[in-house]
Design a protein around this nucleic acid. Structure first.
Ligand SMILES: [Zn+2]
Ligand SMILES: [Zn+2]
Length: 817
DNA sequence: AGCACGCCGACT
DNA sequence: GTCGGCGTGCTC
């Protein structure tokens, strides 16, 4: 009897495919091993074995596995369990889950590029002839396609040999796409401490004698330091002195000036103050002990800690205990919160036990970490973004989900559309691990789980050390506009407070959750406003390069000074974004260094890190930004946070709009006064009495929770009801309507009033594709599994209708919107 | 994901 | 007539 292997291919294929195994291969390969298999006409794919059996397929002849790539599994049984859950719960396919799980470099295909690694000469010994041949080919061409390697060595051994070379670190794939991620550090200049006294300085100037230029440079330095105490970057200093680089460099060589970089300094500091022996405050210790005692009886704990309460120290203490027991810990963070700041802090505690898993890292680095986790033989702390829940943990005992309210834990495209917070709970239960969810503003779902007794709860309402909560005040825009107290979008009060803060040498954060200059340009004569030709949205004005842009498809056109419809020149802009605020702030505060941080100013690889560093180093006085600057960043010198237009947050067509507004405003407010001086938060709004704003001011999460939950219950929304969203997309408007209507009728027959739609979403067309939604609401008493099986049946029937073939259907379980 | 297959408009 | 663009189906 011959043997067969069921494999997952990293493609969107519904079923597992079965290949035959030779006797030899059967012994080489295990469940979880990678194999090379032929698919379709000629291509070889990397697949993963999930089942080995002797049942010959009845209706087709199984093709043979070409090659066993791993003699030991790279996918564990526990990962397969998680795959099964994700497939069933999120209605996805194994292939796409596998793709989300394995680093691409483990799934090489014919089109993959092979490239030479640096510094390989010392590893070149003991290569087989084939390995040598391939390495030579790569060396000669610097990069070749996998298919070329297969031409040289034959289909099978090409793949095998390439894999060997990759595992020996000689070649790698896709290196040009993601370079090693290393934020650049700016060099700063300061005078050697000994010359800070007048006396020593005099001696120095005397000693410099004939070196006039050097004297000048030293004097210029003191002149600058007299004006401002901000750190001086080397680059900036060089541009100001009228001398060649060698002058400054020889002063540095003599030890008169010293170079330093601020980030490194901070790490050093944190090593001295925190490494190994930091201790928790009494309230922190209480929380720590409560979490541990909860873990004795329960699996999931929700930890609500106000901003600046020192949540991270508690996590670190917990991590330490698990590491000492040689166990694995997963520390999940939203992408924006996974900053170098935080990584350094964790590394200063746990050094080489720390592994960071992040999409910014290169393909090879990710493979390396994947293998480290797979082969762990001692404790590990894995810090990662949502996809790290798919890593091959062996001995996972604790999962921390930080900022657990963050919606970026929910993946949308591509499928699997999983929520990493919820999947983490399943992951933990597979491993019999504990879960700690942290947030200053927990999601209603999590808090509801506490009320239902599913999660345990602990809170920390005291800020760490002497930090006082920021004072939050509203500014009534209606009144300010009526009394003509506005300068652009800044009220007089705000201008006053900013000026005052600047004069104290403190920093300001200005929040406006919309990028660009202005979202709509309207003709005052005929009312026309320029629309995107591919999407149903109006174009946003970007003054920086005088373009009108679509934020959905990227379409851009030059700014028109006449109305495109009637030719009138009477155009007016409506609404405002960060760019406009930046312009106004530069006018209002000409002496301040104003910078903007949003998607448009952070396109480059290091832009984000550089802006954050600039702000931390006190180079930037006023930082204007979107929600990008709300997450976890720890700015020590910020005294004032301004929200330009809170009302913009409430009007999103989304049942979570208020919850999200509360979270955003609270997080933004948390950026103010993270040290001993009490921070101030000014919220400009047309509705100062809005209940969400009032809850933010009084830190009244309970009230927000109760009010929101009443709404959710009344309108049948989560957490009471579950939601599944069906998204239909098509270029053909009529087909789309027909298809969505068909499904709507089918579902209404089963679920009647618990079906919403089909209806067009707020933006009915993106990239020339029309969109329609159907919402399936699942009442608390209705079985989710049953509902899904009805849904799957419906989708199967739908897919059998040939005229709907051109209409794409996506299923989103527990959608965010 | 590819790649073949088939349908429809444009062009030798 | 047929060349080739794209939309659709299938892969063990
Ligand atoms: Zn007009
Ligand atoms: Zn568009």
């Amino acid at each position: 009897m011959s043997y067969y292997a069921d494999v997952i291919l990293p493609l969107n294929i519904e079923n597992l495919l079965t290949y035959s195994l030779s006797e030899e291969m059967r012994h080489q390969c295990q469940i979880g091993s990678r194999v090379a298999v032929p698919l379709g006409k000629k291509k070889l794919y990397t697949a993963v074995v999930v089942n080995i059996h002797q049942n010959q397929p009845l209706h087709y002849e199984a093709k043979p596995v070409k090659e066993v790539l791993d003699h030991y599994p790279i996918l564990s049984i526990n990962q397969l369990k998680l795959f099964k859950w994700v497939k069933k719960y999120y209605l996805s396919s194994f292939g796409l889950i596998l793709k989300a799980c394995l680093p691409n470099a483990l799934l090489i295909q014919s089109e993959t590029l092979l490239q030479l690694n640096d510094k390989i000469s010392y590893k070149k010994q003991n290569l087989s002839d084939d390995e040598y041949l391939l390495l030579e080919a790569v060396e000669k061409h610097t990069q070749i396609k996998m298919s070329d390697a297969q031409k040289i060595l034959g289909k099978t051994s090409g793949l095998k040999v390439a894999n060997k070379l990759i595992s020996r670190d000689l070649i790698s794939i896709d290196r040009h796409i993601r370079r090693k991620y290393k934020p650049k550090l700016k060099t700063y200049i300061r005078i050697n401490k000994t010359y800070e006294t007048t006396e020593n300085l005099k001696t120095l100037l005397n000693n410099l004698g004939r070196a006039h230029k050097q004297k000048e440079v030293v004097l210029h330095y003191f002149k600058l330091m007299g004006k401002s105490t901000k750190p001086l970057s080397k680059q900036n200093f060089k541009s100001q002195i009228d001398a060649s680089d060698s002058v400054l460099n020889s002063l540095i060589d003599k030890g008169v000036f010293e170079e330093f970089s601020i980030q490194q300094d901070r790490i050093k500091n944190s090593k001295i103050t925190t490494a190994n022996h930091f201790s928790l405050s009494t309230p922190q210790r209480e929380v720590f002990e409560t979490i541990k005692s909860h873990f004795n009886s329960d699996d999931v704990v929700l930890f609500k800690g106000v901003t600046s309460s020192g949540k991270t120290e508690i996590y670190l203490k917990l991590i330490k205990e698990y590491l000492e027991k040689q166990q694995q810990i997963l520390y999940l963070l939203p992408e924006i919160a996974l900053t170098t700041q935080l990584i350094q802090r964790i590394k200063s505690q746990f050094a080489d036990k720390v592994f960071v898993y992040h999409s910014k890292y290169s393909a090879n680095e990710r493979v390396e970490i994947y293998r480290h986790v797979l082969n762990a033989d001692s404790g590990q702390i894995i810090v990662g973004t949502r996809s790290s829940i798919f890593l091959p943990f062996k001995n996972l005992k604790l999962v921390i989900v930080d900022e657990s309210h963050e919606n970026s834990y929910k993946q949308y495209d591509p499928s699997p559309r999983y929520h990493a917070r919820d999947t983490a709970v399943v992951l933990a239960s597979i491993h019999r691990a504990k879960v700690l969810m942290g947030s200053a503003t927990p999601s209603l779902e999590s808090f509801y789980n506490v009320k239902e007794g599913k999660f345990k709860y602990v809170e920390l309402n005291k800020r760490f050390g002497d930090v006082k909560p920021p004072v939050i005040k509203t500014i009534d825009l209606k009144d300010k506009y009526k009394r003509k107290k506005m300068k652009g979008h800044f009220s007089d009060t705000l201008v006053e407070r900013i000026t005052e803060t600047l004069s104290k040498g403190k920093q300001i954060i200005v929040f406006q959750n919309r990028r660009g200059y202005s979202p709509i340009i309207e003709c005052l004569t005929c009312g026309h406003s320029p629309q995107c030709p591919h999407c149903d949205v109006s174009l946003t004005l970007h003054k920086t390069n005088n373009t009108l842009r679509c934020h959905y498809c990227g379409y851009r056109m030059a700014v028109q000074n006449k109305c495109l419809s009637c030719g009138s020149q009477d155009l007016s802009s409506m609404g405002f974004g960060t760019e406009q605020i930046e312009h106004e702030a530069k006018d209002l505060f000409p002496k301040a260094n104003v910078k903007r941080i949003d998607l448009d100013t952070t396109r480059g690889k290091y832009d984000f890190e550089n802006l954050i560093a600039g702000f931390e180093n006190l180079e930037i006085d006023i930082l204007i930004g979107t929600q990008m600057l709300t997450k976890g960043l720890d700015f020590r010198n910020v005294d004032l946070v301004a929200v330009m237009h809170a009302d913009g947050l409430f009007n999103f067509p989304n049942f979570r709009a208020f919850e999200k507004s509360y979270q955003l405003l609270t997080q933004v407010a948390g950026r103010a006064g993270r040290t001993k001086t009490q921070g101030e938060v000014l919220i400009q709004t047309f509705q100062p009495q809005h209940r969400v704003i009032q809850d933010v001011i009084t830190e009244n999460y309970t009230n927000l929770y109760e009010q929101e939950m009443a709404q959710r219950l009344h309108f049948h929304y989560p957490p009471y009801y579950r939601i599944i969203k069906l998204v239909f997309k098509s270029k053909d408007y009529n087909r789309l309507n027909e298809a969505a209507d068909w499904m709507g009728i089918y579902l209404k027959q089963i679920f009647s009033k618990n079906i919403l739609g089909p209806e067009f979403p707020g933006i009915a067309r993106i990239r020339n594709k029309y969109i329609k939604h159907i919402i399936v609401k699942i009442p608390p008493e209705q079985s989710i599994t049953k509902t899904k099986s009805y849904l799957i049946k419906g989708i199967e029937r739908y897919k059998a209708v040939s005229k709907f073939k051109s209409v794409r259907l996506n299923v989103d379980v527990d959608p965010y919107t």
